[in-house]
Simulated scan of single mutants.
Amino acid sequence: MKVIVDADSCKGHGICTTLCAEVFTLNDYGYAEAVDTEIPEDLTEAVQTAKDACPEWAIKIVGES
């Protein structure tokens, strides 16, 4: 599975980086980016939690079952 942050939707709340700093970071402009789009198996739950917590629905998981 892969994770994508929609740059047009992200407003820089940073919730995803708080919940899963191993996968998400804030860029120089304060918006979220995926550090590595491929989700490590042991972080699947944390990425899903970050996705669900995003108030802008800017996080997409591709290849969800």
Rank of each mutant, 00 (worst) to 15 (best):
43 L>Q: 07
44 T>G: 11
59 I>E: 13
47 V>P: 06
23 V>Y: 03
26 L>F: 01
24 F>K: 04
25 T>H: 11
46 A>S: 12
38 E>C: 00
31 Y>V: 01
1 M>T: 10
64 E>H: 09
65 S>E: 15
31 Y>W: 11
51 K>M: 10
52 D>Q: 12
24 F>H: 08
19 L>W: 03
61 I>P: 08
7 A>D: 13
59 I>L: 07
44 T>L: 10
31 Y>G: 01
26 L>N: 01
24 F>Y: 11
47 V>N: 03
11 K>I: 13
33 E>A: 06
39 I>V: 10
16 C>H: 07
1 M>L: 14
20 C>K: 00
34 A>R: 09
29 Y>D: 15
48 Q>M: 10
15 I>M: 08
48 Q>K: 15
40 P>E: 02
60 K>Y: 12
6 D>E: 13
59 I>G: 12
63 G>R: 12
35 V>F: 03
61 I>R: 13
15 I>C: 00
37 T>I: 09
38 E>V: 05
59 I>K: 11
65 S>Q: 14
51 K>D: 07
26 L>C: 04
8 D>L: 08
3 V>L: 13
10 C>W: 05
26 L>E: 11
22 E>H: 02
64 E>W: 04
7 A>H: 10
24 F>T: 02
38 E>T: 04
45 E>L: 03
25 T>D: 14
57 W>K: 12
20 C>N: 05
20 C>I: 00
25 T>E: 14
52 D>P: 02
52 D>W: 00
14 G>P: 10
37 T>Q: 15
63 G>I: 05
4 I>Y: 15
41 E>T: 08
23 V>H: 03
3 V>M: 12
15 I>N: 08
49 T>K: 13
33 E>Q: 13
64 E>F: 03
22 E>I: 00
63 G>M: 08
32 A>P: 04
8 D>K: 11
36 D>V: 13
15 I>L: 13
25 T>Y: 06
64 E>P: 01
31 Y>M: 11
26 L>D: 02
16 C>G: 07
30 G>M: 08
12 G>K: 07
39 I>M: 04
39 I>R: 05
28 D>H: 08
14 G>K: 07
53 A>R: 06
41 E>W: 02
20 C>G: 03
3 V>Q: 14
45 E>V: 09
21 A>I: 00
65 S>M: 11
36 D>G: 09
21 A>Q: 09
62 V>L: 09
46 A>L: 10
5 V>G: 08
4 I>E: 15
23 V>C: 07
50 A>E: 07
42 D>G: 00
50 A>R: 09
9 S>R: 15
33 E>Y: 01
7 A>K: 14
12 G>S: 11
5 V>T: 06
47 V>A: 04
51 K>T: 10
11 K>H: 09
44 T>F: 04
31 Y>E: 10
59 I>M: 12
60 K>N: 15
45 E>D: 13
3 V>E: 11
51 K>V: 02
18 T>E: 15
12 G>P: 07
39 I>Y: 07
56 E>I: 01
9 S>H: 07
9 S>E: 14
54 C>M: 05
5 V>N: 08
62 V>K: 14
40 P>S: 01
26 L>T: 02
48 Q>V: 07
38 E>F: 04
38 E>R: 01
5 V>M: 09
